[in-house]
Amino acid sequence: MKAIEVKNLSKKYATVPALKDVSFSVDEGELFALLGPNGAGKTTLMRILTTQIDPTSGSAKVFGNDVRSQSGEVRSQVSYVPQEMSVWSDITAYENLLIYAKIYGIPAKKREDAIQSALKTMDLQNVSGRMVNTYSGGMVRKLEIASAIMVEPKIVFLDEPTIGLDPSARKTVWDKLRWLNRNKGTSVFFCTHYMDEADLYANEIGLISKGRLRKIGTAEELKSSVSNETITIEATGLDSGIVRGISGLPHITGARVTGKTLRIMAINSDEAINPVMNLLISTGVKVKSVSSSKPSMDDVFLKYTRGKGKEQETAIADIKRARDRIRKA
């Protein structure tokens, strides 16, 4: 069963297009990242999938249920953690979970267990009696995730789950989400504009910019689709004949010498390195050092979203949101 199936989905706000003809699917049990710059349409897509807003055209299904015609079924299987703070700050953490447990209709007998186990999973048991307005940003996020997992959803949607958090809080949040994904089999669908998070934590990444899904695949697949790997060799005795010889070897797409540096572009550097070394040694070149680099998520991000987002706004928007969170917390 597919957790998510989206076909030709488009969304316009008044006349402004936010999503254009998006199609993709996500398998059950995945940890899926929707990666893209600000304004790409990530939140819009997530809000359609959680039945908050209707698409303009196309269809979307969550665990086989249509978000429009079976929105009730969808809502009872998903949890949603919005980007903004979504807990009440003038009551305690425990009370927040209690109210949500009642809203979701967890039977009275199971309620206490559900609350305590969610608190325990998120390491909040000792602070559950505190008012939420005394919580740090990281604790608020953990409480939001606790409230999302308490209802045992089949899939959790998280919009920019670590925005405004410090590095250690970010790591905790990811450890918890990965634990949930692995041990409870909960599917996780998150939006982010942090490339490193998509790279590190997602099984699969969808790259989105300007309302279009540009590419979908594992981090490895995306990286190898971007560009070649580079082998850099420092050596003496290099000449243009050697460059021509290397260019003719398998797996190699190009080579260039600048002074004592030889740069080789390869489809797969691990496969290419042996023939290259053999050729260099046989022509009497003295090799001083060899290094290779693979394309990073930055390269992927740049290639598929270059000139298509509003990257200069990212930093400012981040700071502003972080402040908002603090002010409201």
Binding site: Q52, Y80, V81, P82, Q83, E84, M85, S86, V87, W88
Partner: peptide, 14 residues
């Protein structure tokens, strides 16, 4: 509405 509470409520089964 400005925080995310309402968004979360409308995504809840009620």
């Amino acid at each position: 509405r400005e925080s995310g509470v309402l968004k979360k409520l409308v995504a809840a089964p009620c």
